[in-house]
């Protein structure tokens, strides 16, 4: 467990009042700079002295990044909006409840009160070998400790691995993928918009980064289109404890059912791969079908087709199949 040391090593602290000012600082300090949102991911790294930024940019005073705005074609959530605000926002509760379900089950009330939506999306993996400062692939080394024959890997990935077998810890990510959300990334050369499902980095592309954010860039907002407003949603988080735990696996889906048939749907799972995965093959199986236990099971079988368990996580294969099935069954009405 954590060793309590006296103090976080010193750094220079900046509290800019605009996103532009923050990006300027990120560029000036480069690789040694750290963006501080709610801090629930950051403090662990600093206290364990595994990451030692020389400059920290605290976004607490950047008001333009805070709050939920209802727009003409959906909802825009500022990066610094707390998870509690997301979980209790009336418009999100009314029309995008898959996200409020996800946000309200993250960690604890205290963490949701300070933790931000962007922080939940860009947080680093919880693989304890990596978190413990072991020089693994993700940390720039040349091995994966979690997939060694004697490794403890009950929480690790069954899909999408490439050298690294850690999983993405974000609970809001699958919900936002199911909602076809887009993320706004601001950098020195302006803004770019990335689809939620493309935002998360595959270890086969860049093993040291969890997202497509580059140094000097800021995730400023999440845009949820009205495509799925008021749709039929399903969200389920499987965790070892009823609170305060990272998910073993989560499933999120958005569905349009018309005349007893699934007209269209989006389904995403997290906790299965190093990035939240969009179940496109399962979606294809389900589209145009009447929701039932059988078709749900078939979609589940398709979802786990390429799954490869490690020594201690084979339970995740039936778990994933069941979660896909559970997202479909009971939707007949």
């Amino acid at each position: 467990m954590a060793v309590i040391r006296d103090m976080i090593p010193a750094f220079e602290l900046f509290q800019p009042t605009s996103a532009e000012g923050a990006i300027e600082l990120l560029i000036r300090y480069g690789e040694d700079c750290w963006v501080l949102g709610g801090g629930l991911d950051s403090f662990d790294w600093w206290k364990e002295r595994i990451k030692r930024p020389t400059a920290v940019v605290d976004l607490v005073n950047v008001d333009e990044l805070k709050g939920v705005r209802v727009t003409a074609d959906g909802v825009e959530i500022g990066a610094m909006t707390t998870l509690t605000e997301v979980a209790t926002h009336p418009e999100l509760l009314a029309n995008y409840s898959v996200l409020t379900d996800a946000a309200s089950q993250i960690a604890t009330p205290q963490i949701r009160n300070r933790g931000t939506i962007a922080g939940n999306l860009v947080q680093d993996t919880r693989c304890w070998y990596y978190r413990g400062g072991w020089p693994c692939y993700r940390a720039g080394g040349n091995t994966c400790y979690a997939s060694a024959p004697t490794a403890m890997n009950r929480e690790h990935a069954i899909l999408g691995t490439s050298r690294c077998v850690a999983v993405s810890p974000s609970d809001s990510a699958p919900a936002l993928i199911a909602l076809d959300a887009q993320f706004v990334i601001q950098g020195s050369r302006g803004e770019r918009v990335v689809d939620a499902e493309d935002f998360f980095m595959r270890p086969s592309v860049d093993i040291e980064r969890m997202t497509r954010l580059k140094p000097g860039e800021l995730l400023t907002a999440t845009h949820i289109p009205s495509t799925w407003a008021g749709a039929t949603f399903y969200y389920e988080k499987v965790e070892d404890r009823k609170a305060w735990d990272f998910a073993l696996m989560t499933v999120a889906s958005a569905m349009r059912i018309n005349g007893g048939v699934i007209e269209d749907l989006r389904m995403a799972v997290n906790g299965a791969a190093p990035f939240p995965i969009c179940l496109e093959d399962s979606e294809r199986v389900l589209r145009g079908q009447a929701p039932s236990e059988e078709i749900g099971l078939r979609a589940g079988e398709v979802a786990i087709r390429d799954a490869q368990p490690l020594r201690h996580n084979d339970y995740k294969i039936p778990l994933m199949r069941s979660l896909v099935r559970r997202a479909i069954r009971g939707m007949e009405a």
Binding site: I4, Q15, L36, G39, Q110, R114
Partner: peptide, 26 residues
Amino acid sequence: DRAACGACTVLIDGVNSYSCSVLTHT
């Protein structure tokens, strides 16, 4: 000291938060 026990909970603007996991300057 890791936002994992709750012993350090205080209210910040009336909202309960872990005081071990927020900078004083914030």
